[in-house]
Nucleic acid binder design. Structure first.
Lengths: 330, 330
DNA sequence: CTGAAAGCGCTTACAG
DNA sequence: CTGAAAGCGCTTACAG
């Protein structure tokens, strides 16, 4: 059915080896020969058999991506960034969803990927050690793992900016909704965002009241629960720093439902710059999810294609001031 | 480095052919032989070389997925559903993002997938004809294409339910925000949702006012623009049927920003049941995105594995009544 | 610049 | 139930 390299060779009057070199643009092929091979291939509508090429060369032209989610804002955008880079490099992206970092241990990828991208898997998860045994370059997102490339963001600095903003507006009773310690959220992320908050509070001479720090389980619903809890505190906080936009949306909903106004009665800052943040008019710390995915892919591609060493890059974040923050009333 | 089938054969004292049969669970292998092969393989930490197996058998154990987006609610959930089914069947999912249905024409998939899933690509897009030349089973989502499996939803019925609900509440001036004719949205979807609206309006003896039908470009921002336009009409509509939840969120935002209340001043119904719909308390028509993806994968897997004929399934939708709809004032 | 040949590591009729 | 052998379709030193 499909033409083989032999068919092309016969038609062009050369050997299979020459066809292989000509088609891949290798040097040491005369221009006239290359031209003859190209047109023979075109006439026969020939494409290389990927399986045969992979078997013979050992190169898979494929990168495996292991992610806990595809439908959450951050992951969806990261995957988009990765795919664009791989598509441009003519690499395939094979997608594995693994919600808890344990189901894979990389066996399904053995001998079929040139590299792996781990999206926010903790260093001690079984998949990470499984991936090591693959013997291919690995990139890790938001988690720094020995021997792997990684792309990080400045969580401490970002949270600090958000908190400083609230302090500068004159807030004193500032609450925080934290990320869950779900396997999908690196321990580091939640810890660093809390750390940035603490540093800024301390620098401002403000107390971090433990009753005003509540876990939001990383979801919109969790944000609603956390928000409800914070609104029941007396006296109520005048501002809330929420460690992710999705949770912040839940908090905003609860504030409105309680008949309070944002920012008049209470200010809210999120983290991410989710696309719905502008709809909610949410002040937030922006991180470039798509660019993070793209850069992670580039790092690993550099290792695969140019034998570059693992690289680590840290992105800075920036504050986007919208309508959910204002000075406290009275 | 990696043990080969010959290594296992030697260790088990059998031929490579027998190892191949034993490991794949084929019949006609004595239990004692199979046991010996299994333990030899385990001792050598052997896994089949995918490239070699694919080359020899012609089976790729891989399904290609072509999608215009990964970060929109519907597509992200569909992909999640697909991945779960493929993972369970031990098939790889290779992901191709193609925003306009023209960049692929399937060449990158040639000879490396056993089947293809097209997410909402119009029948006349270049990728569709490219995919045909692959000669493998194809599944198409939300678009019925000759010779392909497909999964559809009852857009007419769903929109009709939404409209009937508004009519039953007593609304007469009902507006509609339509989906864009972007390549990512099948022509059929927008047309059918408009058709359901028209039928219900007609059945209720109500006029469809062309000034109250506005395009929302399928996005939150487009919904905001469309909403602003509708609010400027005099007299204002008392209810709006919006063909997607993402656009409906934009409409809700504009209503609030204009100082109007929903549902007191104006009712809104969406379509999808996006996870943020509950946060917005949005009445909407629910479609099971994840289940749609899963079923589409099953249909194509049935063709690939059991040589089943193409199948078409239509999902029904249902109305989820929340807080954005109420009888008109006065 | 080009060809002949080995090798990549399996699967699958075919015999027995 | 098992083995020997052909075949899948390339890539890559090695010679020349």
């Amino acid at each position: 059915m499909n033409a083989s390299i032999e068919d092309v060779a016969r038609r062009a009057g050369v050997s299979a080896g020459t066809v292989s070199r000509a088609l891949r643009g290798l040097p040491n092929v005369s221009e006239s020969t290359r031209a003859r091979v190209m047109s023979a291939a075109a006439e026969l509508n020939y494409t290389v058999s990927p399986s045969a090429s992979r078997l013979a060369s050992g190169r898979m032209s494929t990168i495996g991506v292991i992610t806990p989610f595809v439908s959450r804002w951050f992951f969806a955008h990261v995957i988009h960034g990765i795919e664009e880079v791989l598509q441009a490099a003519h690499f395939d992206l094979v997608l594995y969803i693994d919600e808890d970092g344990t189901t894979f241990q990389s066996l399904p990828m053995r001998r079929k990927v040139d590299g792996v991208l781990l999206l926010t898997l903790p260093p001690d998860s079984p998949d990470v050690s499984g991936v090591r045994t693959l013997g291919v370059p690995v990139g890790s997102l938001h988690v720094d793992i020995e021997g792997f490339s990684s792309v990080l963001i400045d969580d401490v600095g970002g949270s600090s900016m958000a908190t400083d903003h609230l302090v500068a507006l004159g807030h004193h009773r500032i609450a925080m909704v934290t990320l869950d310690q779900h396997p999908s959220v690196p321990f580091r992320t939640g810890r660093d965002r809390s750390e940035g908050f603490r540093r800024s509070m301390e620098a401002a001479g403000l107390e971090v009241n433990p009753h005003l720090v509540v876990n939001g389980e990383s979801t919109v619903e969790g944000g609603m629960r956390a928000g409800a809890e914070l609104l029941s505190r007396a006296p109520r906080p005048t501002a809330i720093f929420v460690q992710s936009d999705e949770m912040a949306m839940g908090v905003l909903h609860i504030i409105r439902r309680a008949g309070l106004r944002c920012p008049e009665d209470i200010s809210v800052v999120g983290f991410d710059d989710h696309e719905l943040s502008s709809v909610f008019d949410l002040t937030t710390v922006a991180q470039p999810a798509r660019a993070e995915g793209a850069l992670l892919a580039h790092h690993v591609l550099d290792q695969v294609q140019r034998n570059a060493p693992p690289q680590t890059t840290t992105f800075t974040t920036h504050l986007v001031i919208r309508g959910t923050t204002a000075p406290p009333q009275g």
